[in-house]
């Protein structure tokens, strides 16, 4: 692919332009993207490794990590199943209103996280639709863990589907149709033909979904109640530490999410290289 574009003879001015563009791009990226990334780690280690571990091992932080993992443990599998179903429906069939469906699917992606949290308060809060019923039955959703899980599910709904759809669209339907002609059932077709083809995109989608689920701030902040040690996720804990003058600890905890983000980046890259290789 690259060889097609390579100029066999490059003029001096061409070379100059090339170096100029590359330099500007790299400087821009370094200042704009890399610096914030580096800043997180530098600040986190301001008190050395011992300070770092102390911040991570703090009981409130550990509770936040646990809650974050729980929320992700619910959100990711549910949204994966949904993502596969939606991708299958959208890419293998034609039907009216498909564009509308795709747009609705994308809504959590574009909707402000604040609104995402607000809607659950409106429905499940004590003054909300189900408020009185929930309170009579002593069920706590808002300001408790279930609310956080719900908000997390909402904001990550599109992630798996969005990774799968372009890939499945590019692959077309021929292989599945062929399998059908050859006598395979729907499920067999799915597991033996589709799944192997999409496994890398699926992985990428799951990873991104997980990263977002664990890093969500706005929506969870609205439904959380900020009860230390109970209803704070990692991002919320970062905010609390920051406000308690524990800057190093805030960055230390933030670095956990940054690691996760970087890991998801790397995995996504590997996935992309693998899919272009096949």
């Amino acid at each position: 692919m690259t060889s097609r574009r390579r100029q066999h003879t490059e003029t001096p001015s061409g070379k100059l332009i090339r170096w100029l563009l590359i330099t500007v791009a790299l400087v821009f990226l370094a200042l704009f993207l890399v610096t914030p990334l580096v800043a997180v780690f530098v600040q986190a280690l301001d008190m050395g490794w011992s300070g770092y571990w102390e911040a991570i091992r703090d009981p409130e932080t550990l509770a936040a990590i646990r809650l974050t993992l729980i929320a992700a443990a619910f959100a990711v599998p549910l949204n994966t199943v949904f993502g596969i179903a939606a991708a299958w429906s959208i890419t293998k069939f034609d039907f009216r209103g498909k564009n509308l469906l795709i747009t609705i699917l994308d809504l959590p992606f574009a909707v402000s996280p604040v609104i995402s949290g607000l809607i659950f308060v409106l429905i499940f809060g004590a003054q909300g639709w189900f408020g009185p019923w929930l309170s009579d039955h002593d069920i706590q959703i808002i300001f408790a863990v279930p609310g956080i899980i719900l908000a997390t599910i909402f904001v990550t709904v599109p992630f798996v589907a969005r990774e799968l759809i372009p890939h499945m669209q590019a692959q077309g339907r021929e292989e599945e149709e062929a399998a059908l002609v050859l006598g395979a059932t729907g499920l067999q077709t799915f597991f033996r033909v589709t799944l192997p083809n999409i496994k890398w995109s699926l992985l990428a989608g799951v990873i991104l979904c997980t990263a977002r689920a664990m890093g969500e701030f706005g929506a969870v902040s609205v439904v959380s109640g900020h009860i230390r040690g109970e209803t704070n996720t990692i991002p919320l804990q970062v905010e609390i530490l920051y406000q308690g003058f524990n800057y190093v600890a805030a960055f230390a905890v933030a670095s956990l999410l940054t690691f996760l983000g970087l890991a998801s980046l790397i995995i996504k890259k590997v996935v992309e290289w693998k899919t272009t290789e096949t």
């Binding site: 308060v121 809060g125 004590a126 003054q127 909300g128 408020g131 309170s135 706590q140 808002i142 300001f143 408790a144 109640g225 009860i227």
Partner: peptide, 8 residues
């Protein structure tokens, strides 16, 4: 406000 809205 949070307490009114159900914070226990």
């Amino acid at each position: 406000r949070s307490v009114i809205f159900g914070l226990q």
